[in-house]
Amino acid sequence: MTPDQIVYRHSPGTRITHWVFFLAFLALISSGLQIFNAAPYLDASDKSNPARRVLSIDSTQDSQGVTTVFGHTFRTTGWLGFGDDGMGGRTDRAFPGWITIPAYQSLADGRRWHLFFAWVMAVCGIAYMISGFARGDLQELILRPADVPKILPMQLYYLRLRKEPPPHGKYNPLQKVAYTLVLFVFAPLLILTGLALSPSFDALFHPITVIFGGRQFARLWHFVLMLVLIGFFLTHISLVATQGVFNQLRSMITGRFRLGTHDGVGV
């Protein structure tokens, strides 16, 4: 391929589901934090058990936010525990109003949003998997044994310790590692822990809760997996930002991607 050639990179299915995923992901985080606020602690147990508390976000009598992680306590006033009430004031609240849906405290509305966008995510995820496998896009994204020896050279290239990336297809080995983990490990676990907490699933099939260590533990895993996917999201947008924002965004909107100096360094 000659440099500066425009290629058709993303199918309509990939592009549409990408932006629906993006919106649903934000709505699920914001409404999920709203739900967390109603019981702002996470226990590594089936029933609630303060002795097995991993995280709690609380406030003190004198309006200080206090976050405790594995027994270590931090002052987090203004950010966690005490801060924006979503209505122009400040109050005792685990996650502040500017980050939750709705901004004001409402568990009922948070659940309404969360259960709705869980469905959006599910339908979109199924559409993505069908479209991706049918068109062969996903096969190009899945890590294969042949990619494994190329992971280290690719990392060295990213760290500027190597001049050229190892030869690879549409996606480089590190992209494949990241997407394979997200699409086939972290996202499914996030969905399963969500289902463990979803209406009727526990009664229909106890193992869905039991394998995660029980109901409260499933709530903890669900939260941790959210953090993992936020980590992926941040890495993703930082790469978009540094690898040609315009070109990257265009390829996810119109499908067209200009191959050039950044050929092969995808996001």
Partner: peptide, 24 residues
């Protein structure tokens, strides 16, 4: 880069929160 990352996530979530609240 860290400032960029933190601010883009905050901007996305706070935009999401204010639009979400209006829709709600």
């Amino acid at each position: 880069r860290r400032i960029f990352l933190a601010s883009s996530l905050s901007a996305a979530l706070s935009g999401c929160s204010s639009i979400g609240t209006k829709l709600n």
